[in-house]
Amino acid sequence: MSHTPVDRADLLTPHRDLHNESGALRGEHPGRSRNPVIKVADLAWLEFEKPDPDRAEVFARDFGFAIAARTERELWLRGTFAGSPCVVIRRGQTSRFIGTAFHAAERADLDRLARATGSDVRDIDVPGGGQSVALLDPSGFPVRVVHCAQQLPALSEQQPLVLNTGVGRRRTNATQRPPREPSRIQRLGHVVLETRVFMRALDWYLDTLGMIVSDFLFLDGQRGRGPTMAFIRCDQGSLAVDHHTLALHLGPGTGYVHSAYQVTDLDAIAAGGEYLAERGYRRSWGIGRHIQGSQLFDYWRDPDRFMLEHFADGDLFSCDLEPGWAPMSASGLAQWGPPVTRDFLGANPSPSRLREVMTALRGDNELDPARLLGLMKAMSS
C-alpha cells in the first residue's frame, strides 16, 4: 500500500500560512500614513460608565488592578508600572464603554493636533493633572490624546518564577509554589473595537495618530476587497513596541470587544485565573497562545459582561517591520489552547445582535451581504 508522504514542516508549523512574510500584494494597503499629523506614543487609558462603582471596584481588585484614585463619581484603576492610570470608571445610568485615551509623545503634539483638527487643548481631571485634545473617530468613538503632568510611581511587582528549562538548570534545592492570588496587572496593553466603517476608521488612526499596522486579516475569497481586521501599533521608530495597541475589525456592531492587561508570566495568568474562578467569575476563553501578537492569553467577563484579557509574553515590533497578511478564521486565533468559544467570538445569537445586523445592512457603511457571509464563514472555520 502506498502512502502520500507527509511534510514534517507541516506537522511542526500547522499555521505557517497564516502570516505571509512577503507582505502586501501590489496595490494593497501599505499599513501606514505618509504624513501623519502626530505619532502617539502609547495607549493611556480606557473610559467606561457603570451604575455600581462599588461592584466594579471589587472585580477590579480581583482581576489584579490597583486603585489610583476614588471619588464619589470616578474610580481610577492602575497597574504596577510607573505612568498613568489605565482605566477610569465613571458613575452612569448604564454600563457602557465611552472611549480611549492615547499618550502624546510630547506636549507640543497636542497643539499640532488641535490646529489640524480644529479642536482645543483643555485641562483634564486625571490623577496628577494633565491636558488633552478630544476627538471623534469615524466610528463615533471618543478619542483623547493626552499629556499627563505627573507619572504615578511604580508599585511592587509580582516576580516571575525562576524556571528550569531542560539544560537551563536555574533553580535547585527550591520548589515552585505560586500563590493563588490576583494576577497583578502591570499595564494596559491594547483594546479591540468593532466598527461598520473599518477602512475609514483604520485610515483615521494612521493619518491622525501616526499608528502603523502589524498584521492585516482578510476574508477567504475576498482579499481583493481589502482587509477586514487590522492589528495596529504605535510608531516609536527603532524602539520595539507591542505588536498591537489597537485592533479594529469590521462587523455589524459599533463597540468595545475587549481590552488586554499585561501580567508577569504564565503562572500569574494561571494562578490568577484560579482565583477568579473560585470567586464565581466566568472565563470566556483560555488559556492559550495567540498567533498574531503571540501573547499568552486568558479572557474573562466582568459582572457587566465586559471582556478583559490577562496576557504575557507578547511580540514587540520596531517601525521597520511591514504588515503581515493572513486569512481570517476562528482556528487561526491561537497556536494552542482550548477551542475558541462562541462567547469570545460574539457568535451567540441575540435580539440585539440581529438588530445590529439589520441596521448595518440598511446603512451607509462597509458591511454588505457578501461581507457578512464571509465573516460568518470565517468565525466557523
Rank of each mutant, 00 (worst) to 15 (best):
E72P: 09
Y205S: 02
W76M: 04
L316W: 11
F81I: 00
L113P: 04
L77M: 00
L367N: 01
I67Y: 08
L12I: 13
W336K: 03
L321C: 12
L43S: 03
A330W: 04
F306R: 01
G293S: 01
L239W: 14
G168S: 12
S139R: 08
G64D: 06
L136S: 05
S95W: 09
N365D: 14
R301K: 10
P160S: 09
V257Q: 12
V257S: 08
T80C: 03
A41I: 00
A9H: 05
T172W: 15
S318V: 03
C86T: 11
R305I: 04
D298H: 14
N348A: 04
L296G: 00
D62L: 02
Y275C: 03
P338D: 06
A108Y: 13
R279T: 02
M199P: 08
W300Y: 01
F297Q: 07
L25S: 02
V213A: 02
S380Y: 01
C148G: 11
R184Y: 06
V257K: 09
V121F: 06
S22G: 15
I212D: 00
S132E: 13
D304M: 11
T117Y: 00
P323K: 15
E181D: 04
L354I: 12
G255M: 01
G251R: 08
T172L: 14
I67T: 12
F306T: 02
D109L: 01
F48S: 04
P339F: 09
P178S: 08
Q236T: 03
A41V: 02
K50Q: 15
L209D: 04
F297P: 03
M211I: 06
N164D: 14
G130A: 12
